[in-house]
């Protein structure tokens, strides 16, 4: 019976502590400002690093257009899924997770097909500015997204971390493709993809702590 007494006391305390809350009405609208901030930041970084010289040619190549479109869709769908994940029951829209996951699977197949057809020439493991450029592109978007998502109450911290990194990673990948003229897979996988994998590993291992509530 002491348990019931504790619960009664707790309810009284919680009720006394209640104040009006600012509701997360629509996760879609809630996450949108983050996209604006992330795009503005990445625009600034791209401007600072400079666009690749052959961009006018590249934007007429079908595989490049497909790749940019696909990464854009991954970024948007993963970002919004992360917003829905901030709600305990995802407003019963769990199917949403399938969208960015499917896009990401298609992206991985796209990379795999390029590996099979062109092969991979792994570059020597020396420091390359693209690695730091990727981290520069990731740091502000991922931090601001994490701060935003921490205001929610996720019951899926690992999915939340995965979706956050997927969204930021896709934006970063697309941005790097606009600034770096190197197209061969050895370079892109090592210096464009690996930094985001590292982000995913770090964020994944800290997911439960970061999104604790």
């Amino acid at each position: 019976m002491s348990g019931e007494k504790d619960i009664d006391t707790l309810i009284d305390d919680l009720s006394a502590d209640l104040s009006p809350v600012k509701r997360i009405f629509k996760p879609f609208l809630w996450v949108s400002p983050w996209f604006v901030v992330a795009m503005a930041y990445l625009g600034g970084v791209i401007n600072f690093l400079g666009l690749r010289m052959d961009l006018s040619t590249k934007i007429h190549e079908m595989p490049f257009i497909f790749e940019m479109g696909l990464t854009g869709m991954i970024a948007v769908s993963a970002g919004y899924s992360a917003g829905w994940l901030a709600i305990p029951d995802m407003r019963e829209q769990r199917w949403m997770l399938a969208v960015p996951t499917t896009f990401f699977a298609v992206f991985m197949l796209f990379i795999l097909s390029a590996v099979i057809t062109s092969g991979v020439h792994i570059e020597s493991l020396s420091w390359h500015h693209c690695f730091s450029d990727a981290l520069l592109m990731a740091v502000v978007p991922i931090s601001t997204l994490m701060l935003l998502l921490k205001r929610g109450a996720t019951t899926h911290p690992y999915w939340m971390s995965f979706m956050s990194v997927l969204s930021v990673g896709a934006l970063g990948w697309a941005s790097l493709r606009l600034t770096c003229p190197a197209d061969h897979l050895g370079h892109t996988l090592l210096f464009h993809f690996l930094p985001f994998i590292l982000c995913a590993v770090v964020l994944g291992s800290l997911a439960r702590r970061i999104y604790r509530w």
Binding site: I11, R23, P88, G152, A153
Partner: peptide, 15 residues
């Protein structure tokens, strides 16, 4: 008790 505290903390996420 954990659930009641969690409901309190996450009330703003309910629609």
């Amino acid at each position: 008790q954990d659930v009641l505290i969690s409901v309190h903390k996450s009330l703003h996420t309910y629609s």
